[in-house]
């Protein structure tokens, strides 16, 4: 047998090597997870798991009737599904985003692949069911997996109705949301008193206030946590993308800044899912890289927080 390396063999080997270098997280054999298996998180109190990286639609999917931009968003959602994502979060507050999501789900026949989460956003506490129904029509889903009271607006009335809807099987999970670190005291009081399945809050490597109280409380009370603004509305990239990753980033399973920010979040034991938003396929691929491979341990998480503070 000739031991010469043929041109064909060389090209195949070089191609595979290049792919492995380009996608280290997909090929890494990590502790506790096999190659190519996404990082899943169990929804507390259930046997159901969801991928730890989801997708937000704030700003990015509000493109109105712009067919060119709708086509781009369909590609973003397609990439999200292909890379193992399921959890998509929206709100009636986000303009046309719900309609665009409905069009994208139709185009991709994605209704069965999605964990659909939206919010109730109205001060009229008698409008809970009507708004949920409007959102269902816009998304084109029979019902939502998760309905959340947006930024605690009219939360008393909405939550009572949501509890009834859950009991009737009209929704599977219910929750409340906040963002930008607002109203955390009231948020904690509701977490203590109400039978919530999920809370949604802002958490990232710079905004860490929730580590003190809300995340431990969620863990203790068996409430799932969805994390919004994981990139601080994009400002983390603007601030740090020109900086080098630390030498030890690979040891923490991190290959780029998107993975750095996202893995910091989803490695917190209380976090169920982070929901970065993007309008670009390339960014979606980077975000979904965080769904694979090793996660930083507690020491590495501390080093990550210290590192960004030092920059």
């Amino acid at each position: 047998m000739a031991d010469r390396f043929s041109r064909r063999q060389f090209l195949i080997t070089a191609g595979l090597a290049g792919l492995a270098l380009k996608s280290p997280v997909l090929f890494a054999n990590t502790s506790g997870s096999t190659a190519l298996s996404p990082i899943m998180r169990r929804i507390p109190g259930t046997d159901e798991s969801t991928p730890a990286i989801g997708m937000g639609t704030w700003i990015t999917f509000n493109v109105g009737g712009d067919e060119q931009l709708i086509a781009q968003r369909i590609e973003v959602l397609k990439t999200f599904f292909e890379l193992g994502g399921t959890v998509v979060d929206g709100s009636p507050m986000y303009g046309s985003a719900a309609d665009v999501m409905g069009e994208a789900l139709n185009a991709l026949d994605g209704h069965d692949r999605i964990f659909a989460a939206t919010k109730i956003w109205t001060g009229d506490e008698s409008e809970t069911r009507a708004e949920a129904a409007r959102s269902s029509r816009r998304w084109g889903v029979d019902q939502f997996d998760l309905l959340q009271v947006h930024n605690l607006l009219g939360w008393q009335g909405h939550l009572e109705t949501l509890k009834q809807m859950k009991a009737n099987g009209e929704v599977r999970y219910i929750g409340i949301t906040t963002s930008h670190g607002r109203r955390h005291r009231e948020f904690a009081q509701i977490m203590e008193r109400e039978p919530l399945d999920f809370v949604q809050l802002t958490y990232n490597v710079l905004d860490r206030e929730v580590e003190d109280r809300l995340l431990p409380m969620a863990e203790e009370r068996g409430i799932g946590v969805i994390v919004n603004r994981p990139f601080q509305g994009g400002s983390l990239f603007r601030r740090f993308q020109s900086e080098p990753l630390p030498d030890w980033a690979g040891e923490a399973g991190v290959g780029n800044w998107a993975e750095f920010f996202l893995k910091y979040i989803i490695s917190h034991p209380a976090v169920t899912c982070a929901i970065p938003a993007t309008s670009k396929v390339e960014h979606m691929k980077e975000n979904m890289g965080a769904l694979y491979g090793k996660l930083p341990d507690a020491d590495q998480r501390q080093r990550m927080a210290d590192y960004v503070r030092s920059l």
């Binding site: 700003i59 109105g64 931009l69 507050m93 303009g95 607002r182 509305g233």
Partner: peptide, 26 residues
């Protein structure tokens, strides 16, 4: 919402679309 809550919002929080989408309107 209290006055302090309103003060915690920035103008950015009320704009639900990006510049690309806006300029595409023209």
């Amino acid at each position: 919402m209290s006055g302090a809550d309103w003060l915690s919002y920035s103008l950015q929080d009320f704009v639900m679309f990006g510049p690309q989408v806006f300029l595409r309107l023209f």
